[in-house]
Nucleic acid binder design. Structure first.
Length: 938
RNA sequence: GCUCGAGUGGUGGAAUUGGUAGACACGUUGGACUUAAAAUCCAAUGGACAUUAGUCCGUAUGGGUUCAAGUCCCAUCUCGAGUACCA
């Protein structure tokens, strides 16, 4: 009987689908296990061989856990809002929904043929109104919440309103906007509704705010920093200006500390935790208030991590955009300052960041008073101080900070030394550990830590400072000027945003004629003609009905890509619930994700936002866990192995790789499908593919054209993309699965080369041959030999350890060794072969099902118990001891493991090869490690 | 610059707590089978020297700890990822 993989795989895929083998039921008696993949964006290009890597790994784990008796949920879905479908719509006019639907079909077909154990009954799509209804719902919850620092959690906005109406905002400790004016209860109750709404907006967890964006008038859109090159748009080279726009923001900064603390309790890769830690960027220090001298004493608040160096301040620097600049600049300096501000405004943020070396700035003519010495300190502006970080102002301590030092040198500002025994003639001194303060009044002689404490204490006494923790993390802008995204459930009354009541959700994306921004610069939804909210009928109506009494305009922005992916893992628990985002029962049963696999590129995007929303949901009592994924693994990228031919420049001849000597040749990409396992090019195929080479002369070596190889990112333009469809057709899904795992460690990036797949493919054929020969089944009821059992149990032990450690590549080797050994042993024993089929099944499920079935089982093997390791089969009586001399192994000796150290030493010393090695010398020392090694020194 | 990770045959990669470096594959070479090819099977395959038993060198480089180092420590180099005037 032949191993007919195409037939077998189709058969079992149908069986699984017909029998809903992998459908997970909530609240089963069994213990739950939730295995999650990062759901894909369905792109038009379909899957290449690199995409399924993580899915294969998670599938192996999910299948393994089913064998271990768990109720496994392994769902899949689509992150189906996104830019490519929208851009395609702009070019062709085709509705993104149609493009998306088509791409999903392709994805589904490709995924199905790889044999994943997904529970498709739980599929979600972020662009589906029944799904984004709940994305809109969460947005409303965020809008209706504020962050109470006293309870350290999000609370309903009603509790804040109550506080305001009974006590005003003086006692309220909240995470909110900076520019909050104080008011008491009487003030609050006298405010108009609009005024109250404006105030509340400064406290809500999602709020409207003026945000500075990169606006490209020619394209009519906002550009991200990386879409701008040299100050102009990457596409088209149009001018870009910085513009303030009103945008929705998420108050993620409220959760900065909890996001940091949460990292301690989750098992995520260290590099990923590091980059989140970095991104949140906690720094501890003090905020210090300086007052300007002169008639009007403006306060300037700065943040510093080094309050101990306060006596080293010799100037202050404000960001050019700082609000105070206008107010304090003296008449004499006005021209210079204004010229400088204009010059920096022209430079994009990116340019400013790229060009760190050039020192620039201007003196405002104003002075601030030092809080302790009361000496005047000149106030400068400089673009090395960022408006967006801290307070946009710094106290400059040139002796202790290199940037301040460089600035001071450049502008000839004095650099007072406040460090004991340190030379600062060449550079600033920033080593906290070695710091001893000098020339600093009451701080003299103190080391860093004590000086910080003392300085803060003295500042507090003056009322000019206090200890403070600052975060780099910014609130997240939540508006996009795009069409293909979730619409906001928001309409505007008198310019103030109003939430549409939850029972009227979803607010469906309207139809538009054009997917581009409008001529007046409004987002694409500005093209919609039916996009107004009727507050009486509670429905979306035609724009012509807007009367500003009962019918109002709707929000024109849409939500960003990360909105839909921030809660999908919870929605999978109860995906068809129309009344709730998910039921209490479902979420209490599934709790959280046990294993999450996906790419590391989401470290500071999706994975941070999702943690933020989860914590918010936790505060609202909606979910039982405040971290959504216990364990996370980043799979590495699979790169391509490009093939090159070499064209000689002078003659136009094409040289085989070995013929390139000193001649100038141009490497040209050849499609990898035209190259065989021995790097030999199919010349005829190549000529057909690139007709311009049909008359070119190919110079061969040994009758073959050998291509050059190089590892590059898999990409169409490099002709190194391998489609899993082709691999499945030629070798089968089980071969593909095994090979992807066999390539190397899951988390590592590694090159794909189709040539190697024959190794795992012939392994599957050998496996098959253990069960069948040309006459049919070979499986017997013979009692397994001790040798058979040893091979099997060695394999069980190793494979189990490997899966638990996510070391999938080494288990494939282990299977190969096992099958090679059993073949040599001519093993036909059912006991052994049944266990083997189960062991292999997480990796190669189709062949395993078939083998299991052919051994007389009617049911799928997917939930059959994993074989149990019995150590007694591995007990050895003897050991092949390596005998080394000065650490170098010279020969081995087979000795009983029962021997004592002394007996081993005697046996080794008596061996003829030992005597030969020593050549009469007496050994200085003999190290005997029973069961391991013998080392003779001397 | 900073943070993190990694450097092992022609290639992908193995190597529990330091204990036989190169498992398992690919490729290559030789052989069997075949008219031939494919498939399959067998053997060899880190390098140098040695006709043999064998000797020496080998895990990026240079030091160190140890009876013993791919593994631990120090320094250097290279590559990859993230991040960046963060006060």
């Amino acid at each position: 009987m032949q191993y007919n993989f195409n037939e077998i795989e189709a058969k079992w895929q149908k069986y699984w689908s017909d029998n809903q083998t992998f459908k997970a039921v909530n609240n089963a008696e069994k213990k739950k296990f939730y295995v999650l993949d990062m759901f894909p964006y369905p792109s038009g290009a379909g899957l290449h061989v690199g995409h399924p890597l993580g899915y294969i790994a998670s599938d192996i784990y999910a299948r393994y856990k089913r064998h271990k008796g768990f109720n496994v949920m392994h769902p899949q879905g689509y992150d189906s809002f996104g830019l490519p479908a929208e851009q395609y719509a702009i070019q062709t006019g085709q509705h993104p929904a149609i493009t998306t639907e088509k791409n999903i079909k392709t994805y589904r077909r490709q995924l199905d043929q790889i044999g994943f154990s997904f529970d498709w009954s739980r599929e979600v799509r972020t662009s589906d109104p029944s799904y984004y209804k709940w994305t809109q719902w969460i947005f409303i919850q965020l809008f209706n919440s504020w962050y109470n620092l006293e309870t350290d959690k999000a609370e309903d906005i009603q509790t804040l309103i109550e506080k305001f109406s009974s006590n005003g905002n003086l006692q309220v400790q909240a995470v909110c906007d900076d520019n909050i004016e104080e008011f008491n209860a009487i003030d609050w109750n006298n405010y108009s509704t609009k005024e109250q709404q404006q105030i509340l907006l400064k406290y809500r967890l999602t709020y409207l705010a003026e945000t500075e964006v990169n606006w490209c008038p020619a394209l009519g859109t906002v550009l991200a920093n990386d879409e701008i090159v040299n100050g102009v748009s990457e596409r088209g080279g149009h001018a870009v200006i910085r513009k303030k726009m009103t945008q929705w923001s998420m108050r993620i900064t409220a959760y900065a500390q909890r996001l940091l603390d949460g990292l301690k309790k989750i098992d995520w890769p260290q590099p990923l935790k590091d980059s989140q830690t970095n991104w949140i960027g906690r720094s501890q220090g003090a905020s210090v208030t300086f007052y300007t001298t002169g008639d009007e004493k403006y306060p300037i608040e700065v943040f510093t991590t080094r309050p101990d160096t306060i006596f080293g301040v010799s100037f202050m620097t404000l960001a050019p955009e700082h609000d105070l600049v206008n107010k304090i600049t003296t008449a004499a300096q006005k021209t210079e300052v204004e010229a400088y501000i204009e010059a920096t405004a022209k430079r994009s943020e990116r340019d400013r960041m790229a060009d760190v070396k050039t020192i620039s700035g201007a003196f405002t003519g104003a002075y601030a008073e030092h809080p302790f010495s009361k000496k005047p300190i000149p106030i400068w502006i400089g673009d090395y101080v960022l408006a967006g970080y801290g307070t946009g102002a710094v106290m400059s301590v040139p002796c202790g900070d290199q940037r301040d030092y460089d600035f001071a040198k450049h502008f000839n500002i004095p650099i007072p030394n406040i460090f004991e025994g340190v030379d600062i003639s060449e550079e600033a001194f920033a080593d906290k550990e070695k710091t001893v303060i000098a020339n600093s009044d009451f701080l003299d002689g103190l080391p860093y830590k004590k000086a910080v404490k003392t300085a803060i204490y003295e500042l507090e006494k003056l009322g000019q400072g206090k200890g403070k923790i600052n975060y780099r993390l910014r609130d997240a802008v939540f508006s996009r000027q795009r069409y293909w995204g979730e619409p906001f459930p928001v309409y505007y009354v008198d310019g103030m945003p109003q939430m549409i009541a939850a029972e009227h959700l979803p607010i469906k994306l309207p139809e538009v004629e054009k997917y581009l921004p409008t001529e007046t610069g409004e987002p694409p939804l500005g093209n919609a003609t039916v996009w107004a909210w009727d507050t009486v009928a509670n429905t979306v109506v035609d724009n012509s009905e807007i009367n500003h009494t009962t019918v109002w305009p709707l929000e024109l922005n849409t939500m960003p890509g990360w909105a839909g992916s921030s809660q999908y893992f919870n929605r999978y628990m109860d995906p068809h619930n129309e009344d709730e985002i998910f039921s209490k029962e479902a979420v209490n049963y599934w709790q959280d994700v046990d294993l999450y696999i996906g790419g590391s590129e989401h470290a500071t995007g999706h994975l941070l936002y999702a943690r933020f929303w989860q914590k918010f949901m936790f505060d609202k009592g909606l979910v039982p866990q405040d971290e959504f994924a216990k364990k996370l693994i980043n799979q590495g990228m699979i790169t391509g192995t490009s093939a090159f031919i070499y064209r000689e420049e002078e003659t136009g001849k094409v040289l085989s790789k070995g013929l390139i000597k000193v001649k100038t040749v141009t490497p040209i990409h050849a499609d990898v499908s035209l190259v065989n396992a021995s790097d030999e090019l199919d010349i005829e195929g190549f000529k057909k593919w690139q007709p311009e080479y049909k008359d070119a002369e190919f110079l061969l070596e040994d009758g073959k054209y050998i291509v050059g190889r190089e590892v590059e990112k898999m990409s169409k333009s490099k002709y190194n993309v391998v489609n899993p469809d082709d691999i499945v057709a030629e070798y089968g899904a089980d071969s593909l699965r095994l090979y992807e795992m066999f390539l190397g460690p899951l988390e590592q990036s590694k090159p794909w080369n189709t040539a190697g797949i024959t190794g795992v493919h012939s392994f599957l054929k050998k496996l098959w041959k253990l069960y069948f020969d040309e006459n049919g089944s070979k499986v017997s009821n013979d009692k397994p030999s001790a040798e058979n059992l040893k091979t099997l149990h060695k394999t069980i032990k190793k494979v189990e350890e490997d899966i638990e450690n996510f070391s999938f590549n080494t288990s494939v080797s282990t299977f190969m060794i096992c099958v090679n050994e059993l073949t040599t042993q001519k093993c036909t024993s059912r006991t052994i072969l049944e266990s083997l089929a189960i062991l292999v099944s997480p990796y190669a499920p189709h062949i395993s099902e078939e083998l299991w079935n052919k051994m007389g089982h009617d049911e799928s093997l997917s939930t059959v118990s994993f074989p149990i390791f019995e150590p007694n089969h591995l007990v050895e009586s003897n050991k092949e001891y390596p005998i080394s001399f000065n650490g170098k192994m010279k020969f081995t000796m087979n000795l009983s493991l029962d021997l004592t150290k002394e007996e081993i030493e005697a046996a080794v010393m008596g061996h003829e090869k030992t005597i030969q090695q020593l050549a009469g010398r007496a050994p200085k020392k003999v190290i005997v490690v029973p069961g391991k090694i013998v080392n003779i020194v001397g």
